[in-house]
Amino acid sequence: MFINAIQEIFSHAFMVRALITGLFISVTAAVVGVSLVLKRYSMIGDGLSHVGFGALAVSTALGFAPLAVAVPVVIIAAFFLLRLSNSAKLKGDAAIALISTASLAIGVLAVSLSGTNADLNSYLFGSIIAVSKPDMYLSVALSVIVGAIYVVLYNRIFSVTFDEEFTTATGANTGAYNMLIAISTAITVVLGMRVMGALLISSLIIFPCLTAMRVFKTYKGVMLCSCVLAAFTFFAGLVASFMLKTPTGATIVLVNLVAYLVFYAVGKLRAGVLR
């Protein structure tokens, strides 16, 4: 009966597109998320999603191709936010909050002023119907590129994340790796917004890593577990939202929360047993 339900769900072409796009994006987001969470840059992911919302809304209102505008704008914002959070003088987290709320406000104004077919809800909370075929191809292609970069630079990104000072002192160009992490985050955030919405995309980035860290204590373990978790929670959330007729993005976040609580309990039990 469950198999039948799954078959029925994915007989809709838009659901297949949402599934393929979402799986690629959520696994990419998880991979990028591990370095963001461990470098304590989680707020940057969140800030970028709001900037992305503003950029999408403005470009739609002005009649430009949304992704073509949003991707470069968010990449520039990523450079900027990274610089802010690295500088000790400025209050980095306050500046990020400022930029993200301002972007949100600009986006909301742009949507309401243009007033045409732009749907505020789908920007903020995502819409699986919004995923067009070109969106899907672009998402898959960019996900594969970001994923490949993370595989090739796996050891270097580990070292930059684990101990940036050591990595710089022993001759690596850590600034370049930080930029790469920022650009990858920007790309992932903009792509993920179509499915998850601006308000929920950062959960795709943060949850899998935090959940995996409850049980796994090595970098490789956390990395692999995050990817599996991201794929599983996306799939489960998508199916559940279709069957229960609930909003997709919010359902996926809730599935992630449940997974986190389960892993938390397993981690606690394990620590208790070992003690």
Binding site: L38, N155, R156, F158, S159, F162, D163, F166, T167, T170, G171, A172, A212, M213, F216, K217, T218, Y219, K220, G221, V222
Partner: peptide, 15 residues
């Protein structure tokens, strides 16, 4: 920070 001893030591070979 999730890292095994081995992963941490190996990262010294990066350069």
């Amino acid at each position: 920070f999730p890292s095994s001893v081995n992963e941490a030591v190996l990262s010294g070979r990066l350069n």
